[in-house]
Design a protein around this nucleic acid. Structure first.
Length: 613
RNA sequence: GCGGGUGUAGCUCAGUUGGUUAGAGCGCUGGCCUGUCACGCCAGAGGUCGCGGGUUCAAGUCCCGUCACUCGCGCCA
C-alpha cells in the first residue's frame, strides 16, 4: 500500500465498498459526538467522511487532531445506510471506517477559517494566503485560471502561433508607465528595467521572420492599483502577426476569445464573432467612454440643437461658448421620488459637474426646471429625438465636448445601475476602433500622441502630410468586454520614414527619435514586414469568467493596494553588502528618514539604514 | 498626491440622546453526547473600543489630529 494514499478524497464510492483504502488530506471539519467521531477529510479533489468510535484504536488520535491538520487515514470503505447518505457531496454514499491514522502535520489555531464562507479582512487573507487558497472559492478561481491559460495556449498554437520567451531584464523604455528598475552590478550606475510589455521584442520577432508569435507574458508597471489593476505585475496573452491588416488581427483573436468565454461561460451568453466594431468617436458620443459596457442599454445623444439660443439660458450660453449638451435617457424614471433626483444632483457635483439637469416626462406633461424655461416645441422635439414617452426622464450633461462625453458616460452608468437596467449573465464584447492618432494637450496646447506612437496612422504618409493631425485616425483598437478593457493593440508603423514624420508632428526632432528608439528604427531599415497584434489581459479575462469584482481574487499571491507582498514581506530592506555590490546608496525621503513608519509595517523604510556605508 | 468608506474579542458584527461591570455568533479551552454532515447541549477564557490629543462630572459614542485597510481620482505609451 502506498505510503500516503491509494485514492484521492473525491474517489470514494460504493464500488469500493469493502476495500481498504488510504487517504491523506486536511481535516476540514470535525463532528465529535463524544464516543462517535466524524471527520471530513479534504484534498484538492474532494471531501470524504471518515468515521470512528471510541472502540477504535485510532479514536484518541483523531479526537485530538485540530482542523486543517494534515492526516493520513487508512480504513475500510463502507456504504452508508439509506438514512445517513449525504446527497450534497459526491462521496456522500460512503464513508471510511478508520483503522489507522497518522498525523502528518499538526495545525495550530487558525487566523482565518478554511471551512465555511465567512469573510475575512484582506490584509489577513494576504498574510495567510496559503490558508485562503485552501478555501473553496479562491481554490476554484486558481484552477479556472490554470484551465483558461492552458486553453488559450491550445487555441493559439492551433492557429499557427508559436510561443517564445522574451527577456525579463531589459532596457527602460522612454515612453509609457513608470518602470521597475534593477541595478547593474557589472555596470555601476546603470539599470535594467522590467518590461512593461514585450512590445519591442515582439515587433523584433516579426522583423526576424517568425510570422506569428504569442506568449503568456508577464508585464511590470510601477503604477498605483485599482480593483481591476494589480500593482506591479500582470499577465497578457501577447501576440503579433506579420503581413496582416486590422481585420486579419480581429479574425485571428476573436475566435480565441469567443471560444474561451464560451468554454468557461457556465451558461452565460457570449457575443458571437464577429464582435461589433465601434469607432472611437461614436463610442464617446453614444456611451461616453472608449470602453462601452454593452450590457447597459442606455444610449447618449447630442441634443445641443434643441438648446441653442433656447429659453434655458445656462445651456444656451454654454453652447454659445463652445459647449455641447448630451442627453442620457432614464426610461421609466418619471415615478422616481424627488429625493432620487436630488441625490443624483449631489453626486454630479461631487464628480466635478455643476449639477445634473433633467426633464421628467410626467403623464401630464414635462416637469422640472429645464422644462419650465425651455420652449415647449423644443422640449417636444427633444423628446421625439430621444424616443422617450410619458413616464420617462432624461438627464443632461453640458460642457466642452470631451468633458460632456465623459460625464454623460458616468451618468449613463449610474442611471443604469439605479434603475436596475444592466443585462445579467452575459459577456458583451465589442472592438473600439479608429482611435485618434493625436490629441491636443489641454494644458500646453501641444499636439501629442493619444495612444501608442508606434501605431500606423490610417492613410499612412499621405495622411501625415496632408491632414489636420487631430483628424488623423490610427490603426489602433481596444477589445472590450462588459465595459472592461481587455487589451489594446495596433497595426504597427514599420516604416522609418513614416515614423519620423509621425514623431515630427508630435514635436520630436529626428535626432531625438533616433536616440530614443534607435534599436527599433535600425531593425526597420533592414526589411521589416507590415505587422500588428494585441495583448488581452489574462487576469481580467479570468476575473470576468470567475465573476469576481476584484483582480486579487484571481491571482495566487497578489500584493496589496500599497504594492506590498504581506506573505513574503516584499519589498524589504537588503544588506549593506548587497547595496555595496550594486553601487547603491539609499537616500530616504525626510519623513521615512525620521524613523516614522509612514506605510505598512515600516520596515521597508526604517531598516535600510542608508548612512552606515 | 487628493477624495469617499471602514476600524469594538483571533474573526464577523451589535452597542440607543454621552451615563452601571462593552455584548452576540463563529473560533478557542473544559465537560456531556453512538449517526452527524454548518452536529447538539452546558460552562469558561478572551477587549489598549486602531493610535494620540481635546471637550465633559462622565467618551466606544462628540471634536481635532494621525495610522492602517479599501474604493475612486490623478497615473496607467
Amino acid at each position: 500500500m502506498h505510503r500516503y494514499r491509494t485514492h484521492t478524497c473525491a474517489e470514494a464510492n460504493p464500488a469500493l465498498a469493502g476495500q481498504t483504502v488510504r487517504l491523506s488530506g486536511w481535516v476540514h471539519r470535525k463532528r465529535d459526538h463524544g464516543s462517535l467521531l466524524f471527520i471530513d477529510l479534504r484534498d484538492h479533489y474532494g471531501l470524504t467522511q471518515i468515521v470512528c468510535d471510541q472502540s477504535d484504536p485510532v479514536f484518541p488520535t483523531l479526537e485530538r487532531v485540530r482542523v486543517e491538520s494534515v492526516v493520513c487515514v487508512t480504513g475500510q470503505v463502507v456504504n452508508r445506510t439509506a438514512e445517513t447518505v449525504n446527497p450534497d457531496i459526491p462521496t456522500g454514499q460512503v464513508e471510511i471506517r478508520a483503522r489507522e491514522a497518522e498525523v502528518l502535520s499538526a495545525a495550530e489555531v487558525l487566523p482565518i477559517q478554511v471551512a465555511g464562507d465567512q469573510e475575512f479582512p484582506e490584509d489577513l487573507r494576504l498574510t495567510y494566503r496559503f490558508l485562503d487558497l485552501r478555501r473553496e472559492k479562491l481554490h476554484a478561481n486558481m484552477v479556472l485560471r490554470s484551465r483558461v491559460i492552458s486553453s488559450l495556449r491550445r487555441r493559439m498554437t492551433d492557429q499557427g502561433f508559436l510561443e517564445y520567451q522574451t527577456p525579463i531584464l531589459t532596457a527602460s523604455s522612454p515612453e509609457g508607465a513608470r518602470d521597475f528598475l534593477v541595478p547593474s552590478r557589472l555596470h555601476p550606475g546603470q539599470f535594467y528595467a522590467l518590461p512593461q510589455a514585450p512590445q519591442q521584442f515582439k515587433q523584433l520577432l516579426m522583423v526576424s521572420g517568425f510570422d506569428r508569435y504569442f506568449q503568456i507574458a508577464p508585464c511590470f508597471r510601477d503604477e498605483d492599483s485599482r480593483a481591476d489593476r494589480s500593482p506591479g505585475e500582470f499577465y497578457q496573452l501577447d501576440f503579433e502577426m506579420s503581413f496582416v491588416t486590422q481585420e486579419d488581427v480581429f479574425a485571428a483573436i476573436e475566435p480565441v476569445l469567443q471560444g474561451i468565454f464560451e468554454e468557461f461561460a457556465d451558461g452565460r451568453a457570449v457575443t458571437p464573432a464577429p464582435f461589433p466594431r465601434i469607432p472611437f468617436d461614436e463610442a464617446m458620443l453614444k456611451y461616453g467612454s472608449d470602453k462601452p459596457d454593452l450590457r447597459n442599454p442606455l444610449l447618449i445623444a447630442d441634443v445641443s440643437t434643441h438648446f441653442e439660443n433656447g429659453g434655458f439660458g445656462l445651456f444656451a450660453r454654454g453652447i454659445a461658448g463652445g459647449s455641447v449638451v448630451r442627453a442620457i435617457p432614464a426610461p421609466g424614471a418619471a415615478g422616481q421620488p424627488r429625493g432620487w433626483y436630488d441625490k443624483l444632483n449631489d453626486w454630479a457635483r461631487e464628480n466635478g459637474a455643476g449639477g445634473l439637469g433633467y426633464i421628467i416626462f410626467a403623464e401630464d406633461g414635462p416637469k422640472g426646471p429645464i422644462a419650465k424655461n425651455l420652449e415647449e416645441d423644443r422640449v417636444e422635439a427633444l423628446r421625439v429625438q430621444m424616443g422617450l414617452k410619458a413616464g420617462d426622464s432624461v438627464f443632461f450633461a453640458c460642457d466642452k465636448p470631451l468633458k460632456a462625453a465623459k460625464f454623460a458616460g458616468l451618468v449613463r452608468e449610474r442611471i443604469c445601475d439605479d434603475l436596475g437596467l444592466r443585462e445579467k449573465d452575459v459577456f458583451r464584447f465589442c472592438w473600439t476602433v479608429d482611435f485618434p492618432m493625436y490629441e491636443r494637450n489641454e494644458d500646453t496646447g501641444q499636439i501629442e500622441f493619444s495612444h501608442n506612437p508606434f501605431s500606423m496612422p490610417q492613410g499612412e504618409m499621405e495622411a501625415l502630410e496632408t491632414m489636420d493631425p487631430l483628424d488623423i485616425k490610427a490603426y489602433q483598437y481596444d477589445i472590450v468586454c462588459n465595459g472592461v478593457e481587455l487589451s489594446s493593440g495596433a497595426i504597427r508603423n514599420h516604416r522609418p520614414d513614416i515614423m519620423l514624420k509621425a514623431f515630427e508632428i508630435a514635436g520630436y526632432p529626428a535626432e531625438e527619435v533616433e536616440a530614443r528608439f534607435g534599436g527599433m528604427l535600425r531593425a526597420f531599415r533592414f526589411g521589416a514586414p507590415p505587422h500588428g497584434g494585441s495583448a488581452p489581459g489574462i487576469d481580467r479575462i479570468v476575473m470576468l469568467l470567475a465573476g469576481e469584482p476584484n483582480i486579487r481574487e484571481v491571482i495566487l499571491f497578489p500584493m496589496n493596494g500599497q504594492a506590498q507582498d504581506l506573505l513574503m514581506q516584499a519589498p524589504s530592506p537588503v544588506t549593506e553588502k548587497q547595496l555595496r555590490e550594486l553601487h547603491i546608496r539609499v537616500q530616504l525621503p525626510p519623513r521615512a528618514a525620521e524613523g516614522g513608519s509612514r506605510k505598512g509595517s515600516g520596515d521597508g523604510a526604517a531598516a535600510a539604514a542608508p548612512d552606515k556605508a
